[in-house]
């Protein structure tokens, strides 16, 4: 790994008695897309805000672009792009004006700002909405504008906090496509998400967070290989049927998870498992076979689902 852009050792964040981030270590290399995956309240946003030099540490060490956020926050913020979870655009202004003002906060010359606005509106597919008030934009457009705004200073590192939360599937795919393009240009991305598909699509490497701690680290493929079987058979029982104990399924799969609405059978050989499921078919509403995902990794590591 080359010189890391971000290094954290024993990072801690507290709010009163609540420990939001409980001594985590990680390193993020230049050019990679790095993810923090975890449910709401896992400490992802707190971690992001410390990296963005907008929140003080309560313990541990942090270096961002080789600088100390406590002493050189302003210099760090000048070189990174931040896309917050909540769009905090100026609703009264137009699309282009929002970018213009943001560019001035970075003290970019007006000539540079004008050029970047043109480029970024193309990039964000908002060129036709240039003079529209932000109020009138759809959720997906606002998100893309917030991302464009975070790119005004041509950052080396872009932090995206839950970039697609609240968007419809089409808008999510449009946004992922934009983020791929950034990644291909060599921009380092740090993404928090509680969507396992987002993490799988975007991240080269990720850490799984739960209750302020890192519970696993690796590429999406590594994590699935390490903590899950390649395939999963999901059973949905009829409501009146008593599912019974996990031992009932013991000879069907390598591992069993019983959830409130379904039973997951982790198996290396889905055909063999399905053959063993068939005799109980009249008890089922249905079943399906799927590839294992990061959701399964999370379930295995924490015993809980990512999205409740």
């Amino acid at each position: 790994m080359s010189v890391p852009l971000v290094t954290a050792r024993g990072l801690v964040k507290r709010f009163g008695d609540f420990v939001a981030v409980d001594g985590i270590d990680f390193e993020i290399a230049a050019g990679e897309a790095f993810g923090f995956l975890g449910p709401n309240g896992a400490g992802k946003t707190s971690t992001m805000r410390m990296i963005a030099a907008t929140s003080p540490l309560d313990g541990g060490e942090l270096r961002v672009l080789g600088l100390d956020p406590a002493a050189e926050g302003s210099a760090i913020r000048a070189r990174i792009g931040v896309v917050p979870q909540e769009d905090n655009l100026d609703m009264e202004l137009t699309v282009a004006e929002n970018l213009y003002i943001y560019g001035r906060y970075f003290d970019l010359p007006r000539r540079v700002i004008r050029r970047r606005i043109d480029e970024l509106l193309d990039f964000a597919q908002l060129a036709e909405r240039r003079d529209a008030r932000v109020e009138s934009l759809s959720g997906g457009m606002k998100r893309r504008l917030t991302i464009a705004r975070g790119l005004m200073n041509d950052p080396e590192l872009v932090l995206l906090d839950e970039p697609t939360t609240g968007l419809d599937p089409q808008a999510r795919h449009a946004l992922w496509d934009r983020l791929y393009r950034l990644k291909r240009r060599g921009v380092t991305l740090i993404i928090t998400t509680h969507y396992m598909d987002e993490a799988e699509q975007l991240c080269d490497r990720l850490v799984v967070m739960d209750r302020g701690r890192i519970v696993a680290e690796g590429s999406p493929r590594d994590l699935i290989a390490r903590y899950s079987t390649p395939e999963v058979v999901e059973l949905r029982f009829r409501p009146e049927v008593d599912v019974g104990a996990p031992s009932r399924f013991a000879d069907m799969a390598q591992r069993v998870e019983i959830l409130p609405d379904r039973v997951l059978l982790y198996t290396g050989d889905a055909d063999a498992t399905v053959a063993k499921v068939e005799p109980m078919e009249e008890l089922l509403d249905g079943f399906l076979v799927r590839r294992a995902t990061l959701e399964d990794v999370f379930l295995h590591l924490t015993g809980r689902s990512l999205v409740d």
């Binding site: 907008t54 302003s74 913020r77 931040v82 917050p84 943001y102 906060y105 705004r149």
Partner: peptide, 8 residues
């Protein structure tokens, strides 16, 4: 919050 994510 947006302003404070810049050098300001």
């Amino acid at each position: 919050q947006a302003v404070l994510a810049t050098p300001v």
